[in-house]
Design a protein around this nucleic acid. Sequence first.
DNA 1: GTTTAAACGAGACGGTACGTCGTGTCTTGCA
DNA 2: TGCAAGACACGACGTACCGTCTCGTTTAAAC
Lengths: 220, 220, 220, 220
Amino acid sequence: MVKKPAPSTTRRSEKSRRAIYDAALALVAEVGYPRTTIEGIAARAGVGKQTIYRWWSSKADVLLEAFLDLSARTAGDTGEEPHAIPDTGDLAADIKAVLRVTVDQLKDPRFEIPSRALAAEGVVNEQVGREYMTTLMEPAIRLYVDRLRAAQDAGQLRADIDPRIALEFFIAPLAQRWLQYTGPITYAYTDTLVDYALGGLAPRTPDVPSGTPERGPVGP
Amino acid sequence: MVKKPAPSTTRRSEKSRRAIYDAALALVAEVGYPRTTIEGIAARAGVGKQTIYRWWSSKADVLLEAFLDLSARTAGDTGEEPHAIPDTGDLAADIKAVLRVTVDQLKDPRFEIPSRALAAEGVVNEQVGREYMTTLMEPAIRLYVDRLRAAQDAGQLRADIDPRIALEFFIAPLAQRWLQYTGPITYAYTDTLVDYALGGLAPRTPDVPSGTPERGPVGP
Amino acid sequence: MVKKPAPSTTRRSEKSRRAIYDAALALVAEVGYPRTTIEGIAARAGVGKQTIYRWWSSKADVLLEAFLDLSARTAGDTGEEPHAIPDTGDLAADIKAVLRVTVDQLKDPRFEIPSRALAAEGVVNEQVGREYMTTLMEPAIRLYVDRLRAAQDAGQLRADIDPRIALEFFIAPLAQRWLQYTGPITYAYTDTLVDYALGGLAPRTPDVPSGTPERGPVGP
Amino acid sequence: MVKKPAPSTTRRSEKSRRAIYDAALALVAEVGYPRTTIEGIAARAGVGKQTIYRWWSSKADVLLEAFLDLSARTAGDTGEEPHAIPDTGDLAADIKAVLRVTVDQLKDPRFEIPSRALAAEGVVNEQVGREYMTTLMEPAIRLYVDRLRAAQDAGQLRADIDPRIALEFFIAPLAQRWLQYTGPITYAYTDTLVDYALGGLAPRTPDVPSGTPERGPVGP
DNA sequence: GTTTAAACGAGACGGTACGTCGTGTCTTGCA
DNA sequence: TGCAAGACACGACGTACCGTCTCGTTTAAAC
């Protein structure tokens, strides 16, 4: 997790690590990311600053790991969403359900503040950004890919669609509204996204069943 | 622009403002946003710190205005994209063309570094985020809405589609790839986005298999 | 006073300087020199650390100046000893009187603790040592030289004596006992020093009135 | 030597002790006393920090013992001065000779740096100061006392002189010049000290003009 | 010759202070 | 009188050492 040269992990104090995670998450939640400081985390965790610098290279790094740990623990508690997207046979309904859970999570302050902080840091710090992508988003993305492939096998999705791109229709608009305040985030909104994405934006013309839709203005 | 109480703007030194804009953009480009400081901007601009604090409330605010000014000047130079999305009658082609310009811009370091910095700040600082949205994104969004409405009038887009949501299929995936390093940004990619979005992801069958309620406008 | 490049002294805050002097002397008196820290001085003086680092280059430097200021102020209050060694015509009595004052001062904790700290620092840090010598000791030394020259003129002191060296007989033994705990410091002791120094250690042999006393063992 | 409670010395590693002495002296010589750290000594000696803390109570303590060991070893090599001040019958010459050796030693960097460091520490830390006095200076002082007593017996020194005080005329001025940079240290200087001290500063006249009570031993 | 308890090297730990940098406010002197 | 220059109180930075505290691992004494 973007570690310092990692001194022999054997002697490492588990208690300190836990305390640091807790302090970091608590402080970010209480005062926000920019006003969370390494000194503050250390003081709150009852830990020397050096203990943080020994194991992590930056504030973002601490928070990333703390958040990952939180996610892991939360996932451990409740088998919420982490294992797979349900496959009831109804692709639209399945994805809508998952997105509703995502909406809830985006609004849960326990998750929102640290993950927003990490996302922001990742925008400007490519290393953190890629780390965030890899450890936090990629697993979820893979679940979408799996579900979409299943849908293709079942003929519910066009076979020529790249699932890696298709899933962006579900999550990217939501992400943008969340990250950039471009609009409200509701169940109705995510439901609509799924409908639009699956059905397409252009009118259904019987004579053009599939393939590239752009063929210029159809004259009358 | 989130100003301080704004002392009588009449006496304001135009020369200082220009110098501050230039210094801010130059520093962000050279050392990145986090290592750009107000002291640094003041020193580089040959200006007292107080002159910055008098007119702006934060580093983000300075940069936001500086970037806006840059955009305005650039737009003034070349009538690039700012006025409207072309309407050749071919919706897909028009949007693809615009997205290609957007791709170019996202990769132009002159724009990328400051706008990425502002986007990051906006993620974590809601005030900046909304300001960024309003002043930088909203104008572009309106152009999309206009073009999509025209397409609806022309029957190239389903009439029951909300253009404000539809346009997110074009820009949100691109934004996410750019902000969060979730994938490469190419012309082929944006072209594909347009195709998928307009055509939909589900196979075109007379009866839509999934339980989506909007089955497209049922012609009379 | 071993200053930093000395930013234009005009803007300097007199209040801060006073507060720093007071805090430094108080802390040294209370907790001793090694446990006096720049952070502590700044906190006690209600001053930013940078204000100290701006004007002085080290803890020793602050204390040296503070002590000098204290000496100046004290001298201003009481016309104690600073102007001259009295000349009653009786050299021995005059020097004994001055040394008694010195003994008192060496035992006054207000002076002892900081000057001991400075002396210690000076032993190991030549720059501080020379500064200490120049600003604190040299003026006193000059007074001794003056008085001894007057005694030479009056025929109370051998004409071939270098006063610069002679005075060391009065102050160096005292300094050594004080600095190195080589013996108790009392009026009787300093009186004895004066007597021994003026009278010499070797027995008085009428036939050798002056000149170099070492002439080998005198036979029978 | 101000030791920690001293765990059973039997198991003690001689090799480590030697390494610590060497490292301490080397570091003090190389970077000076204040920048010599216990961590540094441990690292250089290839020894755990605890091994130092187990046997010594402070940096000063380590160095004091190391220096004492160095002195012992050096004295072992060359029978330089440690045993006695020569007694050729010529008191002045004997003391001058010893002081010349002292001058050489004060200028030998091998001795100067650590002993200056210890002296400085001793000025400010009474415990170290007394230890320094007892273990390093006292033996030498005793030699002076012995020699001066012999001189008294031989009638070369006034019988009413306290040798413990008299010897300070020889070593205190030298010590002060060395510790406090109050003047150059040369053979000529120490020779002069001896001459002045033995002969006295006041002119040799049958009746002593100044009011000093001790007029020398009044013969029977 | 084996056992066993110490001293050992290594180094993580909670702390304190370092000296530097940037913040946002306040003050001074020049133009 | 507005502005550059910059001193100020504040506070976080990342580093260096402190002295304490485990960890295995020698190693020398006691068995």
